[in-house]
Amino acid sequence: MKRFPFPFPHDAYRYSANIEPALTRAETAAGAWGDTVLEVDGDYRVELAERRAILQSDPSRMALLDHMRPAAWDALVLLLETLAQQYPRDMAFERSGRSCRWVNRLLDEERDFVLGDDSSLPGGPLAYASSQVQEDIVLLDQREDALWLDAGVVTFAADWSMGFDVGMRFLEVHGPVPRIHEEQIISRAQHFIMRLQPGRNYRRTNWTMTVGRRLDTSTETYPEWGPDRVSIVDDPELPERLHLRVEVQHLIRLPRSGAVMFLVRTYLASLAEVATIPAWRDRLGKVLAELPQDMADYKGISRYREAASDWLLGV
């Protein structure tokens, strides 16, 4: 819980363009988070194995429109260089001209590849990048005064579908979210992202709730996890089964392709775990009790949020 990115600064939650510079350490009641963009934690191997299995059974979780190949290479190199600098004991990246060597001792991998040559890496640059970081990766193209979701590997989506959204404009992707259009939050966010400069990286958090310790709650697997949202209400094990799901999202301008890389890292904490931090227990209870109905409906938590807040607040 020490590095859990508890996302609520207030007892009430509303949508906002809650963007702040990346790498800013954020203190919480339990510790701190946010001093890195990428984070390799104790679940590294487990989560990467899960991603590999998901991609094998459903390749549509990865999409790469042809014009995004340069962006995919741009993303790969930046991610590997960053990992190597951050974890020098376990990882190393060397480049000579276009020839690269990547060593990842955590995965027992050593790989030589050639920049721009898709066949030199298993699955190509984007799939390979997603096999080395726990973060989901989305690549946005910028053209015609808009951002377009034109590539990504998203195996841990919070009730959305990479395969469905690929090729859409940023504003279209966010079409179903209530309130943010009337409040011009999403157009302001797009405006902001379109002016991002390389090296000036930003982040935000988002949250929802998930039944079970389940990272894959994409639209494709709804039949597997949807029914849990009903059965959880009367389950005596609700505090252990219901999880606060927090996404740490980073916005990064890729230097050579000009695309924007959007990284999504998902963290889960059960209500029982949240409750070990009294300030969090109280705060989450109040947020869930106060959340307007339309926002609760969109997040898919309407059925059980009262049961959750009651438990947290000891009602």
Binding site: L23, T36, V37, E81, T82
Partner: peptide, 13 residues
């Protein structure tokens, strides 16, 4: 060099 994701870019010069 190209700013990595490990340190904020200081200045633009």
């Amino acid at each position: 060099s190209t700013p990595l994701l490990t340190a904020p870019q200081v200045g633009v010069h």
